[in-house]
């Protein structure tokens, strides 16, 4: 099963729509609630990252019996130093984004903890691709 969600940079009002849609779907598919929780945390962080940092992005979701494979592709400034971006507490978020309680430098670490596989690749000035794989049975 394949799904696609568009994410608009800077538009926080609909941040979480993709995560919410995927959560509902996984529930319908009777995936273990604990696994759903992990997937949703990782996806939400990825979604918010696009809203907070990029101009626009697309989230591709592919689900089969074994695993969920999520690819989050954005057009944006990119990440110059991915290792640094993965560090807990490091953030480049704007003051406005921080005031909302985002940009605490916890997004990528939360994603790493909650996905079975996390791959991040980025081209400065072009954009970032985040790939998340989570296996549906323990």
């Amino acid at each position: 099963m394949e799904l696609k969600y568009e994410v608009e940079g800077g538009n926080f009002t609909i941040a979480g729509n993709a995560s919410s849609g995927v959560k509902k779907l996984l529930k319908q598919l009777n995936v273990d609630p604990k696994v759903i929780k992990r997937i949703v945390v990782a996806l939400y962080e990825g979604e918010v990252n696009v809203v907070a940092h990029a101009y626009k992005g697309i989230i591709y979701v592919d689900i089969n019996a074994e695993r969920i494979h999520i690819v989050i592709e954005d057009e944006g400034p990119g990440i110059p130093d991915i290792d640094l971006a993965m560090t807990v507490g490091y953030s480049t978020a704007s003051a406005k984004v921080r005031e909302m309680g985002f940009g605490a430098g916890m997004g990528l670490p939360n994603m790493k903890r909650n996905a079975d596989v996390l791959k991040v690749s980025s081209a400065v000035g072009k954009g970032t691709v985040v790939e998340l794989i989570t296996y549906l049975s323990n």
Binding site: G16, S19, V48, F102, A104, G107
Partner: peptide, 27 residues
Amino acid sequence: LLSDVMGHADEGQIWITLQTHRNIMAV
């Protein structure tokens, strides 16, 4: 911090916060 709640709050808890924007509902 929304990511803190995302990462560490558990189902069935009451969340106490000073944030008022709609993203708190999504979380």
